[in-house]
Design a protein around this nucleic acid. Structure first.
Length: 252
DNA sequence: CCATTAAATTCAA
DNA sequence: TTGAATTTAATGG
């Protein structure tokens, strides 16, 4: 179970530690800020970021907490979720290095509508709302890149609504596997992100038992293999075909 | 959904 | 590095 709220104060989290990284020497090329670093007129806000270390399982965004900045993943992976009516967790997405977290509430919302938990020990960069707003107003290229990011996110989330409402459980589980595969890739024949069956279920919008049963069926058909949390995809073509046959689209 | 057993992971010595 | 303790997977009711 997730470690509950260790009272992180992001404003006072201090920057004098070994993982402190200045954006100017950061090697994270997926990072939107890093990609635009040459374009900034005024890089003041970059120097005001905080690096936050999160242990595996630590929640760093709590649903309902006030938004006063935005996170970027410097290192590690994270799951972003929303709690449904019956207390069930719906995983919105998995995020890896360079991705932005907590952007939805950025412009107008005052409170987070999502929670986020580190899946591994992770390092996050935290930028204040004020600094970012100023940077966006001053730097059109940066603003444009942000807009593209938002458009992408919207597209993805619209696809997800479709998949959850129209696909069968088996298709949703397969879709989830393909999503993880696309996003995190393979490592020595196994998906490069260890997830529990519960987490697959929360992403696919089903239950742990259903996932386990679909996995068992897929194993019998030799489409996947599994050793604990390590899932191997044996026949990605057939899996893709099963989704494509029903005319569903794959997101990023 | 819950209970049971098997399997895998974690943790600390 | 091991194995005991804890967590997670798998199955069947």
């Amino acid at each position: 179970m997730p470690i509950v709220n260790q009272n992180i104060d992001f404003r006072t989290a201090r920057k004098h530690n070994a993982t402190e990284t200045s954006c100017s020497i950061c090697e994270n090329k997926n990072c939107l800020i890093n990609r635009n670093i040459g374009n900034f007129y005024d890089s003041q806000f970059i120097n005001n970021k905080n690096n936050i270390k999160c242990k595996k399982g630590q929640q760093f965004i709590i649903e309902g907490a006030p938004v006063n900045g935005l996170f970027l993943i410097l290192k590690g992976t994270v799951k972003v979720f929303r709690t449904g009516i019956n207390g069930r967790e719906q995983i919105v997405r998995f995020a890896k290095e360079g991705e932005i977290i907590g952007h939805r509430g950025f412009g107008t919302e005052e409170y987070y509508s999502i929670g986020a938990i580190a899946l591994q020990d992770s390092v996050l960069c935290y930028f204040s709302k004020e600094g970012l707003q100023e940077a966006l107003l001053k730097n059109p290229k940066f603003a444009y890149d942000m807009m593209l990011f938002y458009a992408n996110e919207l597209n993805r989330s619209e696809n997800k609504v479709k998949s959850i409402s129209q696909m069968t459980v088996r298709e949703r589980v397969i879709d989830s596997l393909l999503y993880i595969h696309r996003k995190f890739g393979d490592l020595r024949g196994f998906l490069n992100l260890p997830l529990s069956r519960k987490e697959y279920a929360d992403y696919a919008g089903t239950t742990e038992e259903q996932v386990i049963r679909v996995f068992s069926a897929l194993k019998k058909e030799n489409l996947i293999s599994a050793q604990g949390k390590k899932i191997g995809i044996n026949d990605i073509q057939l899996l893709k075909k099963e989704i494509n046959d029903h005319n569903y689209f794959l997101d990023t």
